[in-house]
């Protein structure tokens, strides 16, 4: 009875076929907990170790999760694309991108999946600024993201409420169309450009973001946003 209820609630998704791509670079402190949470929900995590100094394999239970390791550090965009390509090869039904630093909430995945199915969208983008989401962001970062929103709009043509959110849920059709060529952080804008180019149906949904001292340390600084901007420019110049 209980299980049928859950099945009904989850719109008949086989959670095992939901692949969660987790790009990780030296995230040994948080990775284990993130993977445990994902496994507790029954998802299939695909950890992409982006050439971390210390191999992250020992933090991943390889019996129930996939582990891919880049020999050299290429950047988050490259790690995401590797995970997505791998999930496609493994016949995933849905592909989710999820940060390894523990800032996302694993319970949001199911909500976003439901929205994806109900609205028949191709991709659902998490947003920490929509009503219904909880975040504890410092003011300085908030203003930076507000600016990033318009920069993204300028380069991609999509005006979203949240410019750089790592939580996204997409269908297989969308994942096949999205080909990330930006290795570093500019991939967030590149995804939007490709959504626009391939005329994918996208929708934003509230997603919680939890800032800890750790994620603040690992996260983007003012300086790195200049780097992102430069990468986006180069992407436009050289294609």
């Amino acid at each position: 009875m209980g299980s049928t209820f859950i099945l009904f609630m989850s719109n008949l998704i086989n959670t095992k076929s939901v692949f969660i791509v987790v790009p990780a670079y030296n995230e040994s402190r948080t990775l284990q907990l993130v993977i445990q949470q994902l496994l507790a929900h029954g998802y299939t995590p695909v950890v992409v170790d982006d050439g971390s100094a210390k191999n992250l394999k020992s933090f991943v239970p390889t019996a129930s999760a996939f582990f891919i390791r880049h020999k050299v550090n290429l950047g988050q965009g490259a790690a995401l694309q590797t995970g997505i390509s791998f999930a496609l090869e493994k016949n995933a039904a849905y592909i989710v991108t999820f940060d390894a630093d523990g800032q996302h909430d694993a319970t949001n995945i199911n909500e976003l999946l439901q929205i994806l199915i109900e609205t028949k969208a191709d991709i659902v983008l998490g947003s920490r600024f929509m009503t219904g989401s909880v975040h504890n962001m410092p003011g300085k970062r908030k203003r930076l993201l507000k600016l990033a929103r318009y920069i993204n709009y300028f380069f991609s043509g999509l005006l979203l409420t949240d410019a750089h959110n790592g939580l996204r849920v997409m269908t297989i059709a969308a994942a096949k169309k999205i080909q990330l060529r930006e290795n570093r952080m500019a991939h967030a804008t590149e995804i939007l450009s490709q959504i626009k180019k391939n005329k994918l149906k996208y929708i934003e949904a509230p997603a919680n973001v939890l800032y800890t001292d750790y994620s603040r340390q690992k996260g983007q600084t003012i300086w790195s946003s200049f780097r992102i901007f430069f990468d986006i420019l180069l992407n436009k110049v050289f294609k």
Binding site: F66, I68, H70, V72, A78, E89
Partner: peptide, 18 residues
């Protein structure tokens, strides 16, 4: 992009065999 493609293919291959 060439390097990325090489590293990606090799990483996926390794994960597949594992």
């Amino acid at each position: 992009s060439t390097l990325t493609e090489l590293v990606r293919q090799q990483a996926i291959k390794e994960a597949q065999s594992q």
